[in-house]
Structures are given as C-alpha cells and as structure tokens.
Amino acid sequence: MKKIMVLIGVLGLILMIALSAAAQSTTMIGGSIRFAPGATSQVISGRLDGGVAVRYEFYAAANQSATITLNSDTNAAVLGVKTLKGQVLLSLDARSATFGMPLPVSGGYELLVYNPGQMATNFSFLLSIPPISTKPGQTAIPANPYYPVPGSWQYRLGGTIQFAKGETMTEIAGTSAGGTCTRYDFYAGNDYLLLATVSSDNNRVNLGLSDNTGTLYVSNANQFGTIRQILSKATKYNLDVCNPDAAATGFRLTFVIPVRVRFAPNTNSAQLAGAVRANGVVSYTAYASAGQTMTVRLQSGTTQPNAFLRISGIDDGVVYQDHTAKLTNWSGVLPRRQDYLIEVVSFQQATNYSLSIQIY
C-alpha cells in the first residue's frame, strides 16, 4: 500500500509539473515566493516531517486570482491561506490541497503547507497569479435564458442568495467600489446548472465562481460578464462581482439555477407543478440526446392561459420557441445532445401551473 501511495504522489507531481512547464521550479522550505521576471507561476517543492507546517509569503494586487495546487507523496499535506493582517481565506481545518479565488486586498499573503500525518512526506505545489486582464467584458457561453423586465431588483451588497419558495431566479442590484469584489454565497446540489449575468454602468464589472473548499471554477481575470456552470457537487459556492476600474459603479446581477428535471426509473416523462409570479419566470433543465423527441405541455389559468413556454438550448443558445408566441405546447426532434432550458413565463398576473415533459 505504501508503494502505491508513493507512486500516486509521484505521478501527481510529474503531471502537475508537466502542465506547468512554463513555471519556474524551486526547492524551498519556507520563505518569500518571488516569480522570475515575466513569469506568472512557480512550482515549489520540499519535504515535511509529520505534524509540521512550513510557512511561505507571496505578494499580489487586489482582484488578482491566485490558484494553488498541492501534491504530496502521502496525499496528506494540506493548504492554509490568509492575508498578513490575519483574514483567513482557506483554513487548514478544511483539509484542502487546492485553493483558488480573487484576492481581496493588495499586499502580502501567508501560505501554509501542513502535514497532519505521522509520516514525513515530499510535497510540491504550483502557485499561479496571472495579471489582471484589461479585456472588455465578454460572454463566456451561448446560453440564452429569458430575463423578465426588471421590476423586482433587491439592493444588496454581498451575503447569501436564497430563492423565494418555488422560484429559480433572483435579481440583485448594488454598487461596487473601485478595485473591489462583492461576494455572494449560495448552496446548490450536484449537477445543477448555474446561469449568472452581470451588467454595470461602466460595462466592466465581471464575475468569478469558486466553492468553500477553495476550488476556482471561473476566474475574474477572464473578465466574463456571464457564467454558465454545471455545479459538480453539493456544497456552498461563492459568486464574486468585481469592478476592476478605479471608480465606483452600479451593477445589476441576474442569478438563475433551474430545477433539474429527472425521470423516475423506466419512465420517459415527468409531471411538474408550481406557481410563477406576475411578469416572472420559472426555469427547468432537461438533458437529451440528438434525435430524441421532446414534448412539453403547459397548463395555467382557468379559462385562458396566464403563462407560456420558452424552449432553448443551453450549449447552442438557439431559442426553439419564444414565449412571445404565447404558446403552451411544444414538440420537436432535438438537434444535438445538450441540456435544454424550459421556461414558464407569465405576463400580467401570477398563476399556478402544471407542466408535462416527455423525452423519447
């Protein structure tokens, strides 16, 4: 077993170094990490006795995204990160070997590598801090969800995002000071889809996504104003709204997590029910393959429909049926394998509805 663990650790180190061929490699037990001129990353290696931690320092500017990946022979070594003023960004108690997030302040940071095991271990980590991009905001995805006319913006600077009962979307407005990030957190399950879009007065505010273990999914350095991300585990996630400009600016964040449609074993359809507010939208996602047929039926209101269907593709961004057609049924042969976004859109009044989805 020991030989297997050592082999796994060595393979991990080889893979990490191969992936970071441009990074400078240094053996160093503690001290200040400084990149070579023009470099944005460095591989540091060393050896730790059991129950011992080694301390490094590095320096970065606010909003730069730092990512750290640690490997060790025993797979036991973990990371801790905090500012030199004591703000904890990743606790050793999290027992994480990865870290990634936009850094909150300009200045020094403390990086700890700790071996909680009894056996000594060799370790190696890659620290990467790319420069802040000056590219204009861009869309990362072709997904094309419908967002209703703003009328229910909540003014909120950070905190936990929670949907009202039965809803799948929230709209948040705020003001972002120059050179800062505003962090929102939310809980989501495995295989759920996140759709988040930010707009701002200066056209520069962008989004970043990480989770509470320090895993970075989307860096603010990419300058994305839109995120589409399949969430890979049930945990708490962090959504950072960042303003790279020097001056403060207003922003508006639309945040959607559709309900994932799942069929019971040996069936090809689902019956769903809910309520949608006036001028609101409730979103669902269903996964299907090319050549399959999807049929969707919506019922609402007593004498005439109060809600209508909008069907679009997540990967291709194609709108197969728009809600403005005011139709309540749709059926078609699906052109590609992807998630399909099924939206229930109301107009003048709130309504209860029932929704039937069949894929065969």
Rank of each mutant, 00 (worst) to 15 (best):
A21V: 15
A21I: 15
A21K: 15
A21D: 14
A22D: 15
A22H: 14
A22F: 14
A22P: 10
A23R: 07
A23Y: 06
A23V: 05
Q24E: 15
Q24T: 15
Q24M: 14
Q24N: 14
S25W: 12
S25F: 11
T26L: 14
T26I: 14
T27P: 12
T27C: 13
I29T: 15
I29D: 15
G30C: 10
G31P: 12
G31M: 07
G31R: 07
I33F: 07
R34F: 03
R34T: 10
R34A: 10
F35C: 11
F35R: 11
F35Y: 09
F35W: 12
A36R: 11
G38Y: 02
G38V: 02
A39T: 08
A39D: 14
A39N: 13
A39Q: 13
A39V: 01
T40P: 02
T40H: 09
S41Q: 13
S41L: 11
Q42K: 13
V43K: 00
V43A: 07
V43M: 07
V43I: 11
I44R: 03
S45D: 02
S45P: 00
R47L: 07
L48M: 03
L48I: 01
D49T: 05
D49C: 03
D49M: 05
D49Q: 11
G51A: 11
A53R: 05
A53V: 02
V54I: 05
R55N: 07
R55P: 01
Y56R: 09
Y56D: 08
Y56E: 08
E57P: 00
Y59N: 13
Y59R: 12
A60S: 11
N63L: 08
N63Y: 02
Q64L: 02
A66F: 00
A66V: 01
T67L: 00
T67Y: 00
L70R: 03
L70A: 04
